[in-house]
Simulated assay, not measured.
Amino acid sequence: MDEIEKIIIKFLSQEANRTELEKLEDLLKTDKGIRVFNSFVKTQYISTLSMTEFDVNKAKASIKDRLKKDKRLTRINLYKRMAVAASVMLILGITFYLGYYTDQKSGPEVVQQPQTIVAGTEKAILTLGNGDEVVLEKGKKFQTGEVSSNGEELVYTDKRHSKVVEKEQLYNYLTIPRGGQFFIKLSDGTEVWLNSETKLKYPVTFAEGLTRKVELIYGEVYFKVSPSTEHKGAGFHVLTKAQEINVLGTEFNIRAYNNDEVMATTLVEGKIRIKKGEVSEILKPNQQAKISEQSDQIDIQEIDVSQEISWVNGLFAFNEKPLEEILTVLSRWYDTEVVFENAKQKKFVFTGILERTQSVEDILKLIEATSEGQLQFEIQEQTIIIK
């Protein structure tokens, strides 16, 4: 086994040091390097699955190991850039495992009608300052005044030279339905990714020299904020139903859905101050703050941020998550309803990394197979039933 193969193995088990990660990053900058990486991973999976008995517990433990928390920022940045390449291994593993598992034993299968559930895609409803609504979707272009869309993103023109005063500010809303996602570049250059079932309020043009404010009405967003040094020191604030975040040029994720009992703010890079009532805390990279509407307490913990922002990279990352939470995430992306026939099923725990482009049927088959007979899924039109 040559050096690069050893490094790939150490990376997949999250044991690689900084020097090894840098070598692997250089390899993945070329098409040839990516082919070498994918070919090696595929070979390892075929070898593993050629055994007469597939050890599900070992597979689950292996996946869990690859999701170990890494507290070092330099390694997190490298892992972020290689996340999609690494996911190839798991997707291949799922494919080979399901095929092998089905051939070797007559295990449970997802009972389903002809496919009616499709993966989410870029779509949104833009509400303009005059109240007009515009449907944004792939293949449909839109432009008016300072805003344009190619159907996959929304871009606002920078008009800082116009010296707009606060009372003249016009606000737009972007609403992402279930089964949708979208990207906005605000007029100040701030980049925002919006997840399914999300609504954001923001000014068409920020008032020069004044604090830049946006409001997350509900849902989940990832911000890459344009620093205040580029805007005459103007700060950036994000308001939600129960907190205010003072941003100091950074990247972070906010999850605050209407039915969430706890809001979670996760810092990837930079620094933010979170305020709830009279209480305020400063978050450092790789930390998450959780806040309840019923309390002014701000709970902060160290986490693996790569899992929290996996949706921005087109992935689902579940690390020992209960089935109820997993299906809540899936229902938003695939625009489905979920019915549990037995409340105990909600507590079933699953670990895995999956692509958001995968069919919901394939994802359910994997979860069902790893349940060792505890679960059976049935799809009826737009409803997933857990038996």
Rank of each mutant, 00 (worst) to 15 (best):
E5I: 00
K6G: 07
Q14I: 15
Q14F: 12
D26F: 07
D26V: 13
L28N: 11
K29Q: 15
K42N: 13
T43Q: 14
T48M: 11
S50F: 00
F54C: 11
K58V: 03
A61G: 08
L67F: 13
K68S: 10
K69D: 03
R72P: 00
V111D: 11
A119N: 10
T127H: 04
L128Y: 08
L128W: 04
G131A: 05
E137W: 01
G139V: 08
G139C: 09
E152F: 06
Y156K: 07
R160H: 12
L170D: 05
L170C: 05
N172E: 08
T175L: 13
K185W: 01
G189D: 02
V192K: 06
K201W: 00
T205C: 04
R212G: 05
K213N: 14
K224E: 15
P227H: 09
K232H: 14
F236G: 12
V238K: 07
L239F: 13
L239E: 14
V247G: 02
L248S: 09
T250V: 02
A264M: 08
R273F: 00
K275H: 07
E281Q: 13
Q288W: 05
S292W: 00
Q294I: 03
I303N: 09
E308Y: 12
G314H: 12
G314W: 08
K321M: 13
L327C: 00
T336D: 00
V338E: 08
K347N: 12
G352T: 08
I353T: 14
E361K: 15
D362I: 03
I363N: 07
L364V: 09
L375K: 05
I379M: 10
